[in-house]
């Protein structure tokens, strides 16, 4: 699963930033990809749609959230945790 999450997220970011997926590394930041605040909410929406999850993200204060958007790696990790949690909830 881990690999798929990363691949899907990179694909979403690439589409938004008009880049090729191979130009995006784990350490890339949203800034370095030229993604602005409006682009970020579109990305959050696309990730929610792709994995059918709800991301705790508030555009008023994007830094102050459990959803860490500082790099591709941190986004992948955060999404994996959310997927994990909702899978456990579904089992119970």
């Amino acid at each position: 699963m881990a690999r798929n999450v990363k691949k899907t997220i990179i694909k979403i970011l690439a589409e938004q930033a008009l880049l090729s997926p191979k130009d995006i590394s784990e350490n890339s930041s949203l800034d370095s990809m030229g993604i602005d605040s409006l682009g970020l909410v579109e990305i959050v929406f696309s990730i929610e749609e792709a994995f059918n999850i709800t991301i705790p993200f508030n555009s008023n204060d994007p830094q102050n959230t459990s959803f860490d958007i500082s790099s591709v790696e941190s986004i992948v990790k955060a999404v994996e945790q959310i997927i994990d949690k909702s899978a456990k909830r579904n089992k119970v």
């Binding site: 409006l38 909410v41 579109e42 959050v44 929406f45 929610e48 749609e49």
Partner: peptide
Amino acid sequence: NRVHPLIVP
């Protein structure tokens, strides 16, 4: 239940 973020603008 989830809507596209750019509807209002």
